[in-house]
Amino acid sequence: MINWTGVFPAVTTKLTEAGAVDIEATKASIDRLIENGVSGVIVLPMLGENASMSMEEREAIIRRAVEVANGRVPVLSGLAEVTLENAKANAALYKSFGAQGLMVFPSLGYKTDIRETAEWYKGIASASDLPIMIYNNPIAYGVDVDIETLRLLKDVPEIVCIKEETGDVRRVTDLYVEFGNRFSIFCGVDDLIVESSALGVTGWVSGMTNVWPAEAVKLFNLCQSGDYEEARKLYHLLTPSYHLDVHVKLVQYIKLAEHLVYGAPEWTRAPRLPLVGEEREYVISTVQKAIEDLKTL
């Protein structure tokens, strides 16, 4: 059985200023993440602007990511669709492109109830044998894959992991009480990672790891070893920047942070626009303070 653990960054898709996919910059960023110790990568997450990508672009991103990883870490792909028919078809396609797992969103077109949500995930699981991480983000998508829903999914072997992003850290314990170790449970919120680690999460799907991968891996490993005193020191420095991961403009914020830290292109695809004015200055000042503070460790 698949048992994902560790830090799995939700990889940003690098673009040119004109809005085209910059494959070389994307490949370079994935290699940088792996070289800095992440345990897996997830391409085409929401942070990777999945919904704005054509199928040709998605294929190129998945194939190139698999080439760059070259077996060093598993490569997962986000799967975000409106209809079950498309979701099932693309689950099979992404496997043919080389993806080794799927991070599956709820339907983007309709707020499913418990029965419908369970059937959505069962249907996608039937389309390929790829292991599935359920992307549970009810704040953004209005669907909570809660305990009751997961009871209907616990016997689906392809579903192996929950990305827990309710914002309520108590859910981690509730999942363990109900299901034991049936699912790997990943923290999906950057500014709850230490709290979630204390409750036993096995991994972390992280946005700001794109910016500081070595530091994120160090933070996660400190928590896993129980060294919370040292973990808190690093966490206190990074948390103001980690708050950028939970804003509606997290794509723009994280891409700008990547640009500031290692020169990656900050461009996004419309309707997202580059940051301007006080908002841009806030992100810059937050990231620059973290850059300076990290030098003191």
Rank of each mutant, 00 (worst) to 15 (best):
N3Q: 10
T5D: 13
V7L: 15
K14V: 08
E17F: 05
G19F: 10
V21K: 11
V21W: 00
I23M: 11
E24Q: 13
A28C: 14
G37M: 12
L44I: 03
L44W: 06
N50D: 02
N50P: 04
S52L: 01
S52N: 09
M53A: 13
A60K: 08
A60W: 02
R63Y: 12
R63M: 12
V66D: 04
E67H: 14
G71I: 15
L76P: 04
V82N: 07
T83F: 04
E85Q: 11
N86I: 10
G98I: 05
Q100I: 11
Q100R: 12
F105D: 01
F105M: 10
L108M: 14
G109Q: 15
T117Y: 06
A118I: 07
Y121W: 14
K122D: 08
G123P: 11
S128V: 14
N137M: 14
Y141F: 14
V145S: 02
D146I: 01
T149G: 10
R151S: 13
L152P: 07
L152E: 08
P157F: 08
V160L: 01
K163L: 05
E164Q: 07
D168Y: 11
V172P: 09
D174I: 02
L175C: 13
Y176N: 10
E178Q: 04
C187S: 12
D191C: 06
I193K: 06
V194I: 11
S197N: 03
G200D: 05
G200N: 05
S206E: 01
L219N: 09
L222E: 01
C223Q: 09
D227S: 11
E229W: 13
L234D: 08
Y235N: 01
L237Q: 05
P240D: 06
P240K: 00
S241A: 14
V248A: 13
L250E: 00
Q252W: 00
Q252V: 04
E258F: 01
P265N: 12
S285Y: 15
K289Q: 07
A290K: 10
